[in-house]
Design a protein around this nucleic acid. Structure first.
Lengths: 179, 179
DNA sequence: CTTCGTTATGTCATTATTGACATATCCATT
DNA sequence: AATGGATATGTCAATAATGACATAACGAAG
């Protein structure tokens, strides 16, 4: 069982989801393509950690809605207690910035601008996520307790927002350096 | 040529380095083991993007000190002008936090504490990096221009520091939630 | 005196991940 | 009318990345 497999189980603690949705929803924590997700789901099903129901659709292709089994939930608890790997980052932009002095300011600004747009979109997405869970939640978000099903999502969006802010502050600072 | 190969060339713009040093120095931007670096360096040498001199050592094993060729520098410039991939993140902790409600507060605190130590160490490392380049630099860091060889390093440490701060703010906030 | 960590390079089998192909329907744009 | 994107699932060859093995010498800790 690799980390991504546990990640899929993690998502299923809150909602039943299709493979396609799992692929989309796991992106903020772990970038993976559908070609990796589907085989892992088949494995998880074989192990008895998830089960699925076939849902026929007329307008779109049929789907398989996966949900977590009790076995899956137990496996998750054990996984949480294990030591946690440090985050892995692969950042092409950072590598380019390291040797940005090779090109002129004009081009450096272009490289930076691309990424600034990306960070801004990211921040907007998180703001939308906050809105969505605010509507789902009975209580004000600040009062959510650890066992509230929305808690995990809330604290992660909080973290992502803090990071996106840090990225944007850096972009502004960097732009002033390239004037 | 994959991104990591260009990353190695990027590092060599500032200093000649051994494979072992490259493996260490690239960690903040791109986590890779020596078993991946050495074969890539051999490829880069074959392509004429880097060259090396053999340096015998008596106390430690001999080393190969790699440096960038003009061809390598040209390849780098072309790479910078290409569209940049978005950063890849694989964060096991984030996945655990998503379903942290499965365990009790005590265990959740334990999981968080592990990572807090990690973020603190990270911040210290960046503070040390700042100290080091301050000593290397003739000017105050704030006045570095894009073509200064220290510029890329300076802006990256700035970014990493901002991010580490954001992570620590989140840890504090999270701890207050787990009281 | 032995074991462990660091420096230093390298190979290789296994595993993780991607990109391309394949199929099918709907909707919006050109 | 055709093209492209979203939804939805799947396979498979190719590439990326890891973990284990191998060698070797030093210093420190036990």
């Amino acid at each position: 069982m690799n980390t991504l497999s546990y990640g899929l189980l993690s998502l299923l603690t809150r909602n039943s989801r299709t493979g396609y949705e799992l692929m989309q929803n796991i992106q903020p924590f772990w970038q993976a393509k559908h070609s990796q997700i589907y085989p892992l789901l088949a494995q998880l099903e074989q192990k008895g950690y998830v089960e699925f129901v076939h849902v026929p659709q007329s307008d779109k292709p049929d789907k398989k809605v996966y949900s977590l089994t009790d076995n899956g939930r137990e496996a998750l608890k054990k996984w949480i207690a294990q030591p946690t790997d440090e985050p892995v980052v692969k950042d092409e932009l950072a590598l380019k910035v390291f040797c940005i002095g090779l090109v002129d300011k004009e081009q450096a600004r272009k490289v930076l601008h691309e990424r600034e747009v990306y960070y801004q979109k990211k921040k907007e997405r998180f703001a939308q996520s906050f809105e969505r869970i605010k509507q789902d939640s009975a209580k004000p978000l600040e009062e959510l307790e650890i066992h509230d099903p929305l808690f995990g999502l809330y604290v992660l969006i909080q973290k992502a927002t803090l990071k996106a802010d840090a990225d944007l502050v850096w972009c502004e600072w960097m732009k002033s350096k390239l004037k």
